[in-house]
Design a protein around this nucleic acid. Structure first.
Lengths: 225, 225
DNA sequence: TCAAAAGTGTTAAGTTTACACCCATGA
DNA sequence: TCATGGGTGTAAACTTAACACTTTTGA
């Protein structure tokens, strides 16, 4: 006790960059602030870490507040520690990105916070260093999505191959060849057909698939070499 | 002013995971603590962020303290915010990795801090979550080193191709084919021969190369597509 | 003269890309 | 019956991986 007394303390914020896919493009859940400070301006959703609460838990709490969902996929982006990054007080902020299925989103909670899904190509001017955070989060997601199957978090539990392709195209802001894409997916044992058919997007109907996390973990174990 | 008054404040530490390559294997500069708390135990080098100092600057300061070098390559790993990660007080810590050429290291400063280069395969038990930090830093370096030329920071300004290969083998804990390796390097315009020869490691002598940062940046610009 | 590190090409295997048509169905 | 999205294979280009011998020179 008492070893650290002479050192200063700082506010520790969390900021959540919430991604979703809608109409084939990548969106962010941003708020047009209906509270001080910076009321009226656009920002990502944030909050302060509480006494007795881990920083990760603070991020999850902020997310539950805004979306009503407590099982959203989140991952830390990094910490932002510039001295003047907020003009009101010294705040060290830890950014997280979250991936969610837009369909799960609680519209009434969103309205309370004045939250809106904004296309990644049409971002408004944001407060503080929130623009930088979004750029870093995007880079990180792109990195991650090529190494592990995070994209599934943006989809409902059962999805068609066309939906999966559109999500990846939204993440990488590109277009892929349908046949090549399906050939690759066919090689992934952890993307498995459910046997069910989705008729909502075409007359013919498309096969539904699901992500099998257990099979994925098995894969990983054996891929150490 | 005053918007954030009701929120708690925390100590913000920085921890530096310092990598070097020696005898063809990857080493970390660890300290066997000669101060409290946790005197006598092994840890990575750290410190606390000061009033009016950015978190990045705090990391650089800690690094200068330990190595005497103010131009070491550093990059943030991530923030660690578990409630009980340190038993003495609530501390949020931001980890950084640093890459340096072991030859530049100031031995007398190191001795003052009781610092030692420890092989990555023979790590001692470390305090707090420092072991986790090292694992995360290693993963991050491996990721980065395959996307951008960070490995050069572990070498002297002029190096032989054998030295470069050994550094990459140390990072990825693997072995590469000499001919394939050299073919790949030959395609990188930003690894250029200096025309000089190193005779210290062989009788015949090996051509010396250097990393040309400007050429690398040019490459990048044109590689946006 | 010989030990020790430097240097050098070719071929096979695997991966990635480009490309166009038929299918099933509800409106 | 026809418009709409679903579904399927093959060949060329490119990339990666495997492999062994000759050169130089100081001790």
């Amino acid at each position: 006790m008492g070893y650290y007394e002479r050192h200063p303390k700082f506010l520790v914020a969390v900021d959540c960059i919430i991604f979703g896919v809608q109409d084939g493009s990548l969106k962010l859940l941003l708020i047009q602030r209906n509270f001080q400070p910076e009321m009226g301006r656009w920002s990502i959703m944030g909050g302060f870490t509480r006494e007795g609460e881990s920083v990760d838990d603070a991020a999850r709490r902020v997310l539950v507040d805004l979306t009503g969902l407590d099982n959203v996929f989140i991952e830390q982006v990094k910490a932002y520690g510039r001295v003047d990054r907020e003009p009101y007080d010294r705040v060290v902020s830890v950014a997280y990105y979250a991936l969610m299925n837009v369909k799960d989103y609680d519209v009434s909670l969103g309205e309370k916070h004045n939250a809106h899904w904004v296309d990644i190509h049409e971002l408004p001017e944001l407060i503080f260093d929130h623009g930088e955070m979004i750029g870093d989060a995007l880079r990180k997601i792109r990195q991650e999505a090529s190494a592990r199957p995070v994209a599934f978090n943006l989809l409902p539990p059962e999805f068609t191959l066309t939906q999966l392709q559109k999500v990846l195209e939204a993440i990488y802001d590109g277009k892929y060849d349908k046949r090549n894409f399906r050939k690759k997916v066919a090689l992934l044992p952890y993307v498995e057909p459910t046997g069910r058919v989705d008729k909502s997007e075409s007359k013919r109907g498309a096969a539904l698939f699901r992500f099998n996390e257990k099979k994925f973990e098995k894969e990983r174990e054996h891929k150490i070499f």
